[in-house]
């Protein structure tokens, strides 16, 4: 791999696998929870700074599929090349797959326990706050221009109001921003 700004300490296959396996094995609540957990964990390891992470996360949004998986794949590839890509894939996929195979017959019954229901209610209550903080942190870490600020506000309103058209509107917002950035810098 010859990425221009590779991190100081290059993690190996098992490092990357271990990190994503651990995150996937203990995190419930879906993509917008797992993405901030991934960010803090790899920043602490010194693999990737916060601003570069949001660059990758934004790129991962352009691909269909589970957000947590795509973000992990991009991060794995960035920090350790194709080996990291494969390690991130296996790390994210194995824990849920294995737990379903082993526990499928009992998980339904466990889900009815009051303590488990309470745990889920509490855990899911933090999701809106984590999601809002993810947007806040991206906004904080970005290099702003008047154009970007105007496009981001217009885009947020357009996508929020677009309902089932969110995906086409998202790509339209990206295309318009890209064209406008291009005109300014040429």
């Amino acid at each position: 791999m010859t990425d221009t700004d590779s991190p100081d300490r290059k993690p190996g296959f098992l490092d990357v696998f271990g990190v994503f396996f651990g995150i996937s094995a203990v995190t419930i609540g879906g993509g917008y929870v797992m993405v901030p957990v991934i960010q803090r964990t790899i920043e602490k390891r010194g693999w990737l700074d916060e601003a570069s992470f949001y660059d990758l996360f934004a790129t991962a949004q352009s691909v269909p599929g589970p957000l947590a998986l795509n973000t992990a794949l991009f991060v794995g590839r960035r920090v350790a090349g194709p080996r990291g890509f494969a390690a991130a894939f296996l790390g994210i996929m194995l824990p849920p797959f294995a737990s379903i195979l082993v526990l499928a017959s009992v998980l339904g019954a466990i889900g009815e326990w009051p303590a488990v229901r309470g745990f889920l209610e509490g855990a899911f209550a933090v999701v809106p706050g984590l999601t809002a903080a993810l947007a806040f942190n991206m906004i904080k870490k970005r290099r702003w221009t008047v154009l970007r600020a105007a496009m981001t506000m217009a885009g947020a309103v357009a996508i929020t109001l677009s309902g089932s058209w969110a995906v086409p509107v998202f790509f339209a917002v990206v295309a318009v921003s890209w064209l406008m950035e291009r005109r300014r810098t040429c």
Partner: peptide, 17 residues
């Protein structure tokens, strides 16, 4: 430039969520 454009869209998607 493409990354910046994608960030603009991504912040919009998160706002929707």
């Amino acid at each position: 430039r493409l990354t910046e454009a994608l960030k603009t869209g991504t912040i919009g998607l998160i706002s929707m969520t």
